[in-house]
């Protein structure tokens, strides 16, 4: 077997980085950054997820075939998010999403 064996030191380092990321995301949530709050939150989450995938899940030491699978997952997720959000973004009236309860009361 030709497993690449990462050292426990590296794992503890990644763990500490994830802890710092968690603290940072809570800290940033209390600052009013306007529309950037969500961007910062998602950027930190994506950074943390990348660390988990690369090191805890050994993607860094995996064959190219595994990299291809991961890239496909991100790509397909991107298609789903981008196309659906493009649709919703070009609708200016969200009343069709509203609860029927609100309209019932108005008509009574």
């Amino acid at each position: 077997m030709s497993d690449h064996i990462a050292s426990p030191k590296l794992y503890v380092g990644i763990f500490l980085a994830l802890m710092v990321g968690t603290a940072l995301t809570v800290f940033a949530a209390y600052k009013d950054l306007g529309p950037w709050n969500i961007v910062v939150a998602l950027a930190i989450a994506t950074f943390k997820a990348t660390l988990v995938v690369l090191f805890f899940m050994h993607a860094k030491y995996s064959p190219k075939r595994t990299h291809l699978v991961i890239i496909c997952a991100v790509f397909w997720l991107g298609i789903m998010l981008a196309l659906t959000l493009t649709d919703y973004h070009t609708r200016h009236d969200f009343s069709f999403l509203r609860s029927p309860a609100t309209t019932v009361t108005r008509s009574v």
């Binding site: 995301t25 809570v26 949530a29 209390y30 709050n37 969500i38 939150a41 998602l42 989450a45 988990v52």
Partner: peptide
């Protein structure tokens, strides 16, 4: 969970 935590818990804390 790394995504759920900020999206569910932290989305509107700054107000």
């Amino acid at each position: 969970w790394i995504y759920l935590f900020p999206l569910l818990y932290l989305i509107d804390r700054h107000n």
